[in-house]
């Protein structure tokens, strides 16, 4: 029943045994205690569990833990390095892009991947990119602004 997997999570090699049916989201939360990845639904609709697998944003409830064997996974806990906030985290703070904070990790993981492919998005493009992530607190208004803030900041940093 148990399957052995080895995954690089937030830069750390994690090895363990999982049931074949264990979802990546449950593996991160229950086995690795990385509870920043949230579970908001059971139909892969809400996006609260979004993480990066090999650099791409995916809803971790749509993948089995065994599928990420040998992969690199980044969760919200791995977003900031050396103690300073990632530009997307800074954007959410500056623009009040979060209230209860439950959807926030998924929003940020989605947005960082999105900004990689579209570093200078329009408001419309941001709103479309957010289609798969639900927020009930902010009406998305300040989330859009947060992503715009991060986009500017990231371009400035990279330029």
């Amino acid at each position: 029943m148990a399957n052995k997997i080895s995954v690089m999570v937030n830069g750390k090699q994690c090895t363990g045994e999982v049931e074949a049916r264990t979802l990546l989201s449950d593996y991160l939360r229950e086995d690795l205690s990385l509870t920043g990845t949230h579970i908001g639904c059971d139909t892969s609709s809400c996006g609260a569990c979004t993480v990066h697998v090999n650099g791409k944003a995916i809803k971790s409830c749509t993948m089995l833990a065994v599928q990420v064997d040998g992969s690199e996974v980044t969760t919200v806990e791995g977003l900031s390095t050396n103690g300073s906030l990632h530009p997307i985290q800074e954007g959410f703070k500056e623009e009040h892009g979060l209230q209860c904070g439950f959807c926030t990790p998924g929003m940020m993981m989605m947005a960082t991947d999105f900004l990689k492919s579209n570093p200078n998005p329009s408001e419309k493009e941001i709103r479309e990119a957010l289609e798969g992530n639900f927020c009930r607190c902010t009406g998305y208004h300040n989330i859009v602004k947060s992503i715009q803030h991060a986009a500017k900041k990231m371009q400035g940093v990279e330029a």
Binding site: L34, L85, G101, T104
Partner: peptide
């Protein structure tokens, strides 16, 4: 915000 932004 800090704890929510860092998954804590």
């Amino acid at each position: 915000d800090k704890r929510f932004l860092t998954g804590q």
